[in-house]
Structure formats: C-alpha cells, structure tokens
C-alpha cells in the first residue's frame, strides 16, 4: 500500500452545454479548503475569475487557493497517472468528462486503482433540454446511459424547480439523489464530501465552512465488522445520505469505505479505529437518523 493518502476522483458528466463548466467554476471558487486538481478537455470553455489565478502556463492554471486546473490531453488515463504522481499529490481530483462520454468508464478507474478512492459520478442534467436529448435517435441512448451511471444528479437551468416530469423520468433511470443546482448553497460538499456540519466540538476534518443546508455526522469507535456484515449494513443505510466515507476495522485488517449515492466502494486500508463521516441534505435527513442507523449495527 502506498504511504500517500489515496487520491479521490470525482467525475463530472453531462452533455455539451449542460453546465459542467459553470459547476467547476463554482467549485474552484468555494471555500472548501482542499487542494483540488480539475482536469478539463479544453480551457476554451472554462472562465476562471482572474482574481483567483496565481499563474497560468500552457496546459496548467494554478489558483491562489491552491487548486490547479489543467487539460488532460488525448490520453485521459495516463493523465490520471500524472495526477497521482504529482508532488504534492492533490487532495482531490475532479475530471470533466466530455459531453458524450460515459463517465463510469473514467470513474471505474478510481475503484480499480489502489492509489485512488472513489469520489463518485456527478451528472449535470440540463433541466430544459435533457428530455429532448434523451429522445434523440442518435445520442439518446448515451444521454440516458449517463443518468443511469450517476451517483448524484445535478439539474441545471431549472428556473426554480425541477419539472416533475423530468424528475419522474430521471427517477425511472436512476436511484441517485436528485438536486437542483440552484438550491445548493455550495457544491463542494456534494462533489467532494468532507463538509463540516453545523459548528460543534470536535469538528470534522476538512476545515470547511459549515452550512445549515447540509447535515454532517461523524463517528469514531472501536467496533469491528466482517466485510460481509459491513456490506449489508451499508446496503441498509438511510436514504438521504449522499456521501459516506471512512475507515472500518475488520478482522482481516481495516477497510476504507467510500459511498456516493448508490455506489459503494471498499478497499483495504490501515487504521487503528473505525471512523466514519456522512453527509446529506438537511431537507432530506437529520443527524439522529444516521446515528441511530449506525448504532443499531454497532450494538
């Protein structure tokens, strides 16, 4: 196992014009306290606030908050390797998938690669044009496929409300939590996880500003689970948790857990205690529900 912490990878999917770049700009300018590396297809579309730019050279833009934005070139996977080898290693890697591509084909690399952690697939759904694209005889199947693999669905351009007909269609394709981008005060908690909940003693790692729209839960303890028991426990997690991560002790060595939307990823790890962090939207879940779920299993 590598001595460096695993590099979490989040993939942003969605068709041309859905709002992927706008989302990335939001992410880069939020006070998340993480050194994020963002990889895009081309800089042409991205429009980073000039005040944030510390240095720009060729295929890399360095920001004053420690984040970097770079182009991935023609070999995305080798670019992943570059990100892993970058010194210092970024805290989080975010990749903007091209408009037609299957984001799962990229995100799966984070599950396969021992040095990476699964950060999930966020698919940006154009609230106005998606139904038409999804019915397009040429690209409809690929559009629907993006939604099917999403861990989080972020609807853009809703003008205040996700149209019920759209919500129904998306729900038929995907169990991923659906959020209206306009309702999200911050996107970092959704894309990266690790947000701190409302101020309380022993705040969570990450050092981010707390926000009342999000519910955070954290737990540390000595409990151990067999891998299969843990998988069953995670499968029974309360709806409304959209991210869950941490280390869990197990008789065969510790496990690292990353849950994003409907996806669960477990890898071997080293840890001397069980430590978990969960995040959800305050409108959908509360801390007590999460704590009760975990306590029931630990008992």
């Amino acid at each position: 196992m590598s001595v460096l912490p695993r590099l979490p990878l989040t993939v942003i999917g969605g068709y041309l014009g859905a709002g992927k770049t706008t989302l990335l700009n939001r992410l880069l300018s939020e006070p998340h306290g993480q050194k994020i590396m963002v990889m895009v297809n081309d800089f042409g579309a991205i429009n980073i606030d000039a005040a944030l730019i510390a240095q720009a050279d060729g295929d890399t833009i360095s920001l004053t908050n420690g984040c970097v934005c770079c182009t991935m070139g023609n070999d995305l996977f080798m670019a992943l390797g570059d990100a892993l080898d970058r010194c210092p290693r970024p805290d989080h890697l975010v990749i903007e998938a091209s408009g037609i591509s299957d984001p799962a084909k990229i995100a799966m690399a984070a599950r396969a690669e021992p040095d990476m952690a699964y950060g999930g697939i966020a698919v940006v759904v154009d609230g106005q044009n998606w139904p038409k694209l999804a019915d397009d005889p040429l690209i409809g199947a690929q559009m629907r496929g993006q939604v099917q693999v999403a861990d989080v669905l972020l609807v853009s351009k809703t003008g205040g409300m996700v149209p019920p007909s759209l919500a129904v269609r998306l729900a038929a394709l995907s169990r991923a939590p659906l959020m209206d981008l306009a309702d999200l005060p911050q996107v970092a908690p959704v894309l990266l996880g690790g947000v701190a909940p409302a101020p309380q003693p022993g705040a969570l790692p990450g050092g981010m500003a707390a926000h009342p729209a999000y519910v955070g839960w954290s737990h540390q303890g000595p409990e151990q689970f067999e891998r299969r028991t843990l998988e069953a426990l995670l499968a029974a997690r309360p709806a409304g948790i959209y991210r869950l991560k941490g280390h869990v002790l197990s008789p065969d060595g510790a496990l690292e857990v990353h849950v994003v939307g409907p996806t669960v990823d477990i890898k071997p790890a080293q840890s001397d205690s069980t430590r978990m962090v969960a995040i959800g939207l305050a409108s959908q879940i509360n801390r007590e529900t999460i704590a009760a779920w975990w306590a029931s299993a630990a008992a």
């Binding site: 995305l76 996977f77 080798m78 992943l80 390797g81 892993l84 799962a104 084909k105 990229i106 995100a107 799966m108 690399a109 599950r111 396969a112 690669e113 021992p114 990823d265 477990i266």
Partner: peptide, 28 residues
C-alpha cells in the same frame, strides 16, 4: 468489485481485464 476485472468460476479474478479503467492500474 470493479467492472472489467473479470472473475472465474471460483470468484477470483481470472486475469482478463476489460476496458481502460481496469487496465490502467496495470499499464501505470
């Protein structure tokens, strides 16, 4: 549990890796 890491009847990986995501850690 990675798509593309193919398993044999015994549940262990049979050595075949499909698509770049599963191949990438090897290539790297």
């Amino acid at each position: 549990n990675v798509e593309g890491v193919m398993k044999g009847a015994d549940g262990a990986p049979n050595g075949e890796l499909q698509e770049m995501a599963a191949m990438f850690p090897v290539m790297r």
